[in-house]
Simulated scan of single mutants.
Amino acid sequence: MGEFWPLQMVFQASLLLMHRWAEQNVNPALFPRELMANASDLVMDEEVSYNPQILLKKAHAATSSIGSATVIIAMLEKSGTLKIANVGDCGLRILRKGQVVFSTAPQEHFFDCPYQLSSELIGQTYRDATLCSVELTEGDTIVMGSDGLFDNVFDHEIVSVISKIQNAVEAAKALAELASNHSVDTTFDSPYALEARNMGFDVPWWQRILGKKLTGGKLDDITVIVGQVIRASID
């Protein structure tokens, strides 16, 4: 396991805030759960009006739990426009005819330190969200997930799973299982390991001489949502 120590070091950097909450005896799951529950409750609010940034603003303001979280919200208008607000390193992919035609980009202060909404006065807010709008067509597939998915599964693997499994629920389960398997595989050259090497993290020089390199998945929470665009039937 010695050759994998740099990957563990950079992963530990992303856990500092979680450790802070743990030291204060704060359950880190409470803040994101309440945040998403508030977003669900407010989605039909007149002020929101299919604006994910406003939804993010109101949901964050209504959240009283202590903690922090990355978050992505997508709202589909009846016209077929998907509006997205993203804070941090959650992600979204749109697949069309077997190809990824749209991807969100993560927001990070530096490698493995993503933007987050939090209960603290100093930090990111809805104003920091990256906003996107995408015109969808019938047959498109939307894949949303936490960094636990995209740090462990390549886009071409997502395309492969979606092409084989038409049912959205089963596809989400398959992607989550694939991400989980990759996360504990120390020999898998994951997206996370690839990015770490690109940022200068690697095994010691003497191991590189022997042909070794930094590999392995990233242990993390994994959330996956898959949706398919279909034409609504009108009675």
Rank of each mutant, 00 (worst) to 15 (best):
G2K: 09
W5H: 12
W5Y: 15
P6A: 13
Q8A: 14
M9K: 11
F11R: 08
F11K: 12
Q12H: 00
A13I: 08
A13T: 09
L15Q: 15
L16R: 13
L17W: 08
L17D: 11
H19W: 03
H19F: 04
R20S: 09
Q24Y: 06
Q24L: 15
Q24F: 07
V26Y: 07
N27S: 11
N27C: 05
L30N: 12
F31A: 13
A37G: 02
A39S: 14
D45Q: 10
E46N: 12
Q53V: 11
Q53W: 02
A59E: 01
A62W: 04
T63K: 01
S64T: 14
S65K: 13
S68A: 14
S68T: 10
T70A: 15
T70R: 07
V71A: 10
I73F: 05
A74D: 10
A74V: 01
E77T: 11
T81K: 09
T81Q: 06
L82F: 01
K83N: 11
I84G: 00
A85E: 04
A85L: 09
V87R: 02
V87T: 05
G88C: 07
G88H: 01
L92D: 00
L95C: 14
L95V: 11
K97W: 00
V101P: 01
F102Q: 03
S103C: 12
T104P: 14
T104N: 01
A105W: 04
P106A: 15
C113N: 14
L117T: 13
S118P: 04
S118G: 14
S118I: 08
S119V: 09
S119E: 10
L121C: 04
I122V: 11
G123R: 05
R127F: 02
D128R: 12
T130K: 14
C132G: 08
T137K: 00
T137Y: 00
E138T: 14
G139T: 00
D140L: 00
T141W: 03
V143Q: 00
D147S: 04
L149T: 03
F150L: 09
F150T: 05
F150Q: 08
F150V: 10
D151K: 15
D151A: 09
E157K: 14
V159R: 03
S160N: 15
I165P: 01
I165S: 09
Q166N: 08
A168M: 12
A168F: 08
E170G: 04
A171K: 00
K173Q: 10
A174V: 04
A174Y: 07
L175I: 12
A176R: 09
L178W: 03
A179Q: 10
N181M: 06
D185A: 13
T186N: 06
T187Y: 07
A196D: 03
N198H: 02
M199V: 07
G200M: 11
W205C: 05
W205Q: 15
W206A: 09
W206N: 15
Q207W: 15
I209T: 07
L210E: 08
L210R: 15
G211Q: 13
G211T: 08
L214Q: 01
L214E: 05
T215D: 05
G216M: 05
G217K: 06
K218E: 07
K218P: 01
L219G: 12
I222P: 03
T223Q: 03
V224T: 04
V226M: 03
Q228G: 02
Q228Y: 02
Q228R: 08
R231D: 06
A232I: 02
A232V: 01
D235C: 07
